[in-house]
Nucleic acid binder design. Structure first.
Length: 514
RNA sequence: CGGGCUGUGGCUCAGUUGGCUAGAGCGUCUGGUUUGGGACCAGAAGGUCGUGGGUUCAAGUCCCACCAGCCCGACCA
């Protein structure tokens, strides 16, 4: 079509030619090393192309793949095993707080969404809508839930009668669909799995407290203690809050490329929904009042955060508490019966951990090492002839690659120590990365430059929606949150962008975001 | 949804101005030798060239539409 085509092809041929020559020359010089390097190259280095690295880690760890269905994801068994661990832990944390699980339909009548004006406005561009059923056109289209506030609150309106019914809390584990323009595995897929909790309270104050309680006592705790992922907590700006919310709180975490990931949200919905769904209760004073609600959720996006927080150029790194397999035992010679017996006894000793023994006889040990490293298994135990002589094994930890010899009797104790140390040092490393990239700025020039470098940039800002849009247009960054733990600064402050006097004493965090 | 790029065995790709039964490497399978960081030898299987039209004696190659993926925007957990 274009004249340029010919030139492009020529360039392509030349490039291919030269790279082939280069490769063969290298092979002549450093044969072994070159072969290894090309073999390793199935994971792109983080520094070269972060996005490609992310995809390579997922593919090599066999976590997930794109579905033939546009924007959707197939979660493969190993990826799903990680999700199951997340679900199990979060579910038990929620149950400890008295939250009960329930399930609501995947289909929501279109009219339900339309009852809350801001809610429908926020979600309508990304809805999947069912128009036919049973071979006939439906009288009213059914929306595939993008979130379940509306269908759940319709039930609340019939379930909640008295102040004695409050607070009322329900959680559901479900899939939701949001027709996203640009999908990315785990981070933004058209269909995703999540937990969504919904509560009803007698007052705005109680709703506020509950939304924060979930954030701090469930989400922060889970991120820190289990994911080893340090998160900031804070409040979203007007422009960034949930469609239909009075206030949105979030946990937000810094990824290794300097971008911020919203890992979970908790909303104080005030009485915005209860007014439109007529959810009311008879209070002690005999007055009929609207309830105040909260909703909160975390999704399979957590796995994306997990990957981008800890993984390295060799592949996935999992915090021990979320690893589906914590220890893998690799007998160097699978035909060595004595070594197999030792492996069996080690499995027994490690009864409290999830352990797998790799007895595949068609793979050499080195190949197994790479495979389990790419899957992020925290500890590898090697049992070979040399170890058998010493009545010991070799322990290798995934994050540092450190090897050590360990007497057989000491294994449970050492494994426990290593796993604990790895769990805490992964957190410490991520926290250090974040703190080192934090910046405090007071001029537009510094602001712009700091954003380019990545990490959170703390500055004074007016909070205005149009001002935020302007900042986004100029820098690609948006406000992430107003940190809860930020200190108040006395005196007047001017907005970094528009120069207006701000009403806030605290600085906002800005960052490039996922 | 706009702009750019891509789609050929499981994976990475080659395939010239359209021309014969579409190739390579890796992986897979079978057998053998090996086994402390991605082994080697011998043999084998595996492809509707993204889908549907069109042009042509002839299409992986040219044209159109659609689908999917990647990158950049807008949107978002």
């Amino acid at each position: 079509m274009k004249k340029d085509d010919g030139i492009d092809k020529k360039d392509k041929i030349d490039l291919t030619g030269s790279s082939v020559v280069e490769r063969s020359l290298t092979i002549n010089g450093l044969k072994q090393k070159t072969e290894k390097e090309t073999a390793m190259k199935n994971i792109t280095k983080r520094g070269e192309d972060y996005s490609q690295w992310y995809q390579d880690v997922i593919a090599n760890a066999d976590l997930a793949e794109h579905s033939v269905v546009r924007g959707c994801m197939v979660i493969k068994p190993y990826g799903y095993a990680i999700w199951e661990k997340i679900v199990a832990i979060l579910d038990s944390m929620l149950k400890e707080m008295g939250v009960k699980n329930a399930y609501f339909p995947i289909f929501i009548p279109e009219s339900f969404l339309e009852r809350e004006k801001k809610h429908v406005k926020g979600f309508s561009p990304e809805l999947a809508v069912v128009t036919h059923g049973g071979g006939k056109k439906l009288e009213e289209p059914l929306v595939v839930r993008p979130t379940s506030e509306t269908i759940i609150y319709e039930s609340f309106s019939r379930w909640i009668r008295s102040y004695r019914d409050l607070p009322f809390v329900i959680n559901q584990w479900a899939n939701v669909v949001r027709w996203e323009m640009r999908p990315r595995l785990f981070l933004r897929t058209s269909e995703f799995l999540w937990q969504e909790g919904h509560s009803a309270h007698a007052s705005l104050q109680e709703a506020e407290e509950y939304a924060l309680k979930i954030l701090n006592e469930v989400y922060v705790k889970f991120a820190h203690d289990f994911m080893a992922m340090p998160v900031y907590t804070g409040q979203k700006s007007e422009g960034e809050k949930f469609a239909g919310a009075f206030r949105t709180f979030c946990i937000e975490s810094l990824m290794q490329d300097g971008k911020s990931l919203q890992a979970g949200t908790s909303h104080n919905l005030s009485d915005n929904f209860s007014k439109s769904f007529d959810v009311s209760f008879l209070d002690q004073d005999g007055q009929r009042k609207n309830i105040f609600q909260t909703s909160w959720g975390v999704s399979t996006r957590l796995i994306g955060g997990l990957i981008m927080t800890h993984s390295d150029d060799k592949g996935l790194v999992l915090p021990p508490k979320l690893a589906p397999v914590q220890v893998v035992i690799i007998p160097i010679r699978v035909t060595d019966q004595a070594a197999i017996e030792v492996a069996k006894s080690v499995v027994k000793q490690l009864a409290g951990f999830s352990v797998e023994t790799d007895l595949r006889d068609y793979l050499r040990p080195g190949e197994k090492y790479y495979e389990w490293e790419k899957k992020g298994i925290p500890v590898r135990i090697e049992i070979g002839p040399k170890d058998m002589e010493n009545r010991a094994v070799v322990l290798v930890r995934r994050d540092t690659g450190a090897k050590e010899s360990c007497a057989i009797s000491q294994i449970p104790q050492r494994v426990e120590e290593i796993l604990q140390d790895m769990q805490s040092s992964l957190f410490a490393a991520a926290l250090k990365r974040r703190e080192e990239s934090n910046k405090i700025v007071d001029s537009w020039q510094d602001f712009e430059q700091a954003l380019k470098q990545g990490g959170y940039v703390f500055t004074h800002w007016c909070g205005d929606e149009s001002c935020e849009a302007d900042i986004k247009q100029k820098t690609k960054a948006v406000s992430r949150f107003m940190p809860f733990d930020a200190r108040e600064e006395h005196g007047d402050h001017l907005c970094i962008n528009c120069g207006k006097k701000t009403v806030y004493k605290k600085r906002w965090a800005f960052a490039l975001a996922y």
